[in-house]
Simulated scan of single mutants.
Amino acid sequence: MIRRHRITRLLAAACVLAAAAGCALSGEQPPPVEAPPQVEKARVKVGVLPVVDVAPLHIAIKNGYFEKEGLEVETVTVQGGAAAIPSLIQGGLDITFGNWVSFIGTESKGDAKAVGGIKLINDGYQAKPGMFLILVKGNGTIKTMQDLIGKRIAINTLNNISELTTKAVLEAHNIDPKRVTLLAMPMPDMEAAIERNSVDAGFMSEPFISKAQRNSGQLAILDAASGPTDGIPIAGYGTTGDFARQYPNTVAAFQRAMAKGQRDASDRATVQALLPDYAGVDRDTARLVHLGEFPTSLDAKRLQRVATLMQTYGLLQADLDVAPMLVRNDNK
């Protein structure tokens, strides 16, 4: 019986070899694997924030996805999309992470017209409940959303996704957004500012939410990713029209690497393991963070929702079609 099995395996192996020899004799060759086009710019400066949202980029760096595309990514920490876009326009950054509100607002005002406008190249983050919270002091006087009337709320930059979602959700709870004061402040500074009463509340994303709750006992008074802003697209990566036109292979390579990073970020453990390295949180806090969605493709219809809300709440003065801003790479 054992011998019969050995003979069967030998015959099968001989058939495989014969088939391979037949291909060689017939002159047929397996189709060549096409290498991606060589990038025009091998080193790119990318603006980032120390927040969960950019985990896919750090995953792509760590796993060598950019390196395989012939790219070296230099990360530059920025305060927010609104602060990073001027640097993008002036050439200090090649690509930047930013919220869609800032990108769309810049395009609508024509502020980037001299550099070919703003182009959106990668989706980054989409809202889920619990990931965009307005926090207040745990032992303070603010107990309900109505208590926010007349108070000061810190947001990382003005005219961005924080302002849009705050206004939308306040209004959904019958609070006139004009009856609160929004103050620009770096997100890492908000926890301490609330504790010393420099502001009354802070609009935070992760990991700053979990840090403030764990370290200072701060409480969530409002979920800014709820009601009219439930599931709203938050942020992604943009560049200028001039950069996209001058370095198309570089942009496509960046998109391919990021698509892999976005895909890997669907695994919570992968994101959680990286947070202590780039977001400055301890591992216990990293285990507590609320995660949003990491989309793997750009969708004009989804982003148009942001432009519509912007017009509703006065952050956009006229209709804007988002579709022409997108630079798609179908070869992912």
Rank of each mutant, 00 (worst) to 15 (best):
A114Q: 12
Y125M: 07
P295L: 07
E72I: 11
A286P: 10
A82N: 05
D267S: 11
T229C: 11
P56Q: 04
I194A: 03
P188C: 08
S87F: 04
L135Q: 03
I134A: 11
Q317K: 15
A253L: 07
M187L: 11
I95K: 13
G138S: 05
L219Q: 08
V101K: 10
I118L: 10
D277E: 15
D282N: 15
T8P: 00
F97T: 02
M204R: 02
S198P: 00
N122P: 01
R9S: 05
G236E: 04
S102Q: 07
A127S: 15
D94M: 09
D147T: 08
V33F: 09
G80A: 14
T181V: 06
M258Y: 04
M258I: 08
V281N: 02
M325E: 03
A252F: 02
A42C: 01
N122H: 13
A24N: 09
S108D: 06
I155C: 01
A184D: 13
Q317A: 14
I149A: 13
I59F: 00
R305K: 14
S205P: 00
T77N: 12
G105R: 11
A24E: 10
K301I: 03
C23F: 15
D123P: 12
K68F: 00
D319L: 03
V169S: 07
G70N: 12
G117R: 10
R263H: 05
G314K: 10
P233N: 10
A273D: 14
R256I: 02
V78N: 04
V169W: 02
V327Q: 10
D147W: 06
T166H: 05
V271F: 08
Y247N: 15
Q38K: 15
I232R: 10
I121A: 07
P129A: 13
L316Y: 09
I175Q: 01
L291Q: 15
V44K: 11
L133Q: 14
A154D: 03
V199Q: 05
A114P: 00
E293R: 14
M187F: 06
G140A: 06
S102T: 03
V101W: 10
P207S: 07
L222T: 09
F203D: 12
A279H: 02
H173C: 01
L135R: 04
L291S: 03
A259K: 15
V199K: 03
E206M: 05
D319M: 08
G116C: 04
T312C: 00
A20G: 10
I149E: 12
A307P: 02
A323N: 13
I142E: 01
V169H: 07
T296I: 13
P56W: 01
E69K: 12
L320E: 05
Y65G: 00
S205Y: 02
G80W: 03
A201R: 08
K128A: 09
L158D: 08
V44N: 09
